[in-house]
Simulated assay, not measured.
Amino acid sequence: MIEALLNSYSAFNGHQRLATGTLRDVAIATKDTLDREPNASFLIFHDATGRQAEVDLRGTLDDVLARLSADAPVATAPKPEEEAPRGPGRPKLGVVAREVTLLPRQWEWLNSQPGGASVALRKLVDEARRKNEAKDRQRVLQETVDRILLVLAGDLPKYEDALRAFYAKDQMRFETAIANWPKDVRDHVSRIIEAGNPDYWVQ
């Protein structure tokens, strides 16, 4: 998830961007447009993930906002203590007990480490997270952009060229491929990439 866009949503009517902001702001703008254009078709995206957000636009604006308040999606990643009941451990650290399956030699090595298996495993996980943080962020950004491109640009010319250039981190080729796309689509995708990783195109 792209933290800078955690509370940001964007609404599109076809290839036209109607609004970007909080889900409430986007819902208001979308409802206003729908009241003026009853046959319009809308897509609302969570900018941090590229996933579509479902907003029920039936009824009055007050009806829409009332439902939104009751059913608003949680835009934060689940905390460990919310994923499973706490088991034995140190509550202040939010330790959660889970089953881990390892080979005997691996258990033997873990148990020989200072602090025992649990401490050694936590250290190994933290080290791996630090080591792979940049790769993980890149993967999340690529998945987000991939989802947006598929829905907004899947029917546009040179869509596949743009996608290949994006994954190859070839900025010039990417910008050439999307040059004739609708401006709102180009600007939106560029904004997501910039927010996700300003240095994405740097090889």
Rank of each mutant, 00 (worst) to 15 (best):
R139Y: 13
F45K: 08
R173V: 05
K31D: 00
M1G: 08
L121S: 06
S8L: 01
K183C: 01
A40Y: 06
E99S: 14
L124P: 07
A117D: 05
R122P: 09
W107A: 05
V151E: 15
P38M: 02
A84F: 08
T20L: 04
V55P: 01
P85W: 11
E194R: 15
F12P: 01
K135F: 06
V100L: 12
G94C: 09
D170T: 06
W109R: 12
L68W: 06
K123E: 13
P114S: 11
R173S: 13
P104Y: 04
F174K: 04
T22H: 02
T30E: 09
N39R: 11
A27F: 01
Q106A: 10
G14R: 00
P88Q: 15
R139M: 10
Q113D: 12
E133R: 10
R139D: 11
E175Y: 15
P73W: 02
D32M: 10
R164F: 06
D126R: 15
L65C: 08
V119E: 15
G14K: 00
W181Y: 05
A195S: 15
R24K: 14
K169S: 10
D155T: 05
A134G: 12
L61M: 04
D161W: 04
A153K: 07
L93Q: 11
D56P: 03
S118D: 09
P85H: 09
E83C: 14
K131R: 15
P114D: 06
R130P: 04
E160C: 02
V185I: 14
P91F: 05
G154W: 12
K123C: 02
I2C: 01
V140N: 08
A48K: 04
I44P: 00
L121I: 14
I178F: 05
I2R: 00
A75T: 15
A70Q: 13
E54D: 12
I178A: 07
E160N: 08
R130L: 12
R90C: 02
R173N: 14
D71A: 08
E108H: 03
P80L: 14
V55C: 03
F174T: 05
D56S: 03
Q203E: 02
L57E: 01
T76V: 10
D56V: 03
A117L: 12
G59H: 02
W181V: 04
G59N: 00
V100T: 09
W181T: 07
F12D: 02
V26M: 06
Y9L: 01
A117Q: 10
W181N: 06
A48S: 14
F166R: 04
E160H: 05
P91L: 08
F45Y: 06
L93W: 09
S190A: 15
Y167E: 13
S118P: 04
A75S: 13
E194P: 02
N39Q: 14
D136C: 07
D126K: 15
R58T: 13
R164S: 04
A4M: 01
G14D: 02
E82Q: 13
V74M: 04
T176Q: 15
N111F: 07
V125F: 11
D199W: 01
M1L: 03
R17A: 01
D71L: 13
